[in-house]
């Protein structure tokens, strides 16, 4: 009987396997289709798109739309292309990610290795910040930024993103460091290392995977944010806002090929971060959650 079951198991195995692959293939095509449409159309002249066939490959290949999106397209009233906004985004995202990650690491270190009265309550409150919707804080945040003179500037945006991100990064690092034995810290204390020396020489070198998680998470969130950028960006708006202004402009001809190129440009940095660091991402998430 056991032989018989095994026999059927093998034959049904082949059929189901084929079915599974077929379904997976269909899903993959389905998910890749938008990307294909974007890439294909960004490399066509506009008349090929308005001619009607969005799904076809370009008949004449051109990188003109890309160049236009990057440097000459009309963003709002200025024909600057996306370049200055791309630079704005970089100037915002790099410090915001760096500062929130470093603060999260130090917070995690203190909350696990230098416990104090009420530390769990404090951590709970910080966690709470992960669940506050952006919209709620818009007006108070605008008031604060105005009072400290950072309204409508990149440093203001950095501050907003650090404040919002530090809850997440603290959560990551706290859970990760909870799995690091406290005896290590005690040994280092006896060896004569101080607060920052222990952090710098013992804890931080162990933090590779969780740092990758924190950086990817923060980079994606800050780069993709539209609401804060539109509300507090002022004259130095980030890429997402510019892309909106490019695509949503209501006068003149809709240059779909330029829009597609612009959209890809806006998505490219996060895509690169994922491809470069992605395989550490899952590993780090597991390490942080399971052991913590």
């Amino acid at each position: 009987m056991s032989v018989a079951t095994q026999d059927t198991a093998i034959s049904t195995g082949k059929i189901t396997r084929a079915l599974i692959y077929l379904v997976l293939l269909l899903f993959a095509l389905f998910y890749l289709l938008p990307l294909f449409v974007m890439v294909a159309n960004s490399l066509k002249p506009l008349d090929e798109i308005t001619g009607g066939n969005m799904l076809a490959l370009p008949q004449t290949w051109t990188i003109e739309p890309w160049l236009a999106a990057w440097s000459t397209a009309q963003i709002g009233v200025e024909p600057t292309g996306l370049r200055p906004y791309f630079i704005n985004s970089i100037l915002m995202v790099v410090p915001a990610v760096a500062i929130s990650t470093i603060l999260g690491a130090i917070n995690g270190y203190i909350l696990t290795k230098w416990r104090f009265k009420g530390d769990n309550i404090l951590f709970g409150l910080m966690l709470f910040s992960c669940f506050i919707p952006f919209q709620i804080v818009l007006i108070p945040m605008a008031t604060v930024l105005g009072k400290i003179g950072l309204a409508g500037s990149i440093p203001g945006l950095i501050l907003v993103h650090v404040v919002y991100g530090v809850g997440f990064t603290t959560l990551y690092y706290r859970n990760y460091y909870a799995a690091v034995p406290s005896e290590l810290v005690r040994a280092a204390m006896i060896d004569g290392a101080g607060f920052f020396r222990i952090f710098w020489r013992i804890l931080l070198p162990l933090s590779g995977p969780i740092t990758v998680v924190s950086v990817i998470w923060q980079f994606t969130n800050v780069w993709n944010d539209f609401l804060f950028g539109a509300s507090f960006g002022g004259t130095s708006q980030p890429m997402t806002v510019a892309l909106n202004n490019l695509v949503q402009s209501s006068t003149g001809v809709k240059e779909y090929n330029v829009h597609f190129a612009g959209a890809i440009l806006a998505a490219l940095p996060t895509l690169i971060v994922y491809i470069v660091a992605g395989r550490y991402f899952v590993r780090g998430l597991m390490a942080g959650s399971v052991k913590g």
């Binding site: 034995p181 005896e183 290590l184 005690r186 040994a187 280092a188 204390m189 006896i190 060896d191 004569g192 290392a193 020489r201 013992i202 070198p205 162990l206």
Partner: peptide, 30 residues
């Protein structure tokens, strides 16, 4: 007095060796 200034050394149950340092660095860290 801070632990490092008591002129003591401690061997822990879990050994508490610094995982990112070599054996030599571990031993001379103090």
């Amino acid at each position: 007095v801070h632990p490092s200034k008591r002129n003591i050394a401690m061997v822990f149950q879990s050994y508490a060796l610094y995982p990112n340092m070599t054996v030599g660095q571990n031993m001379t860290f103090g």
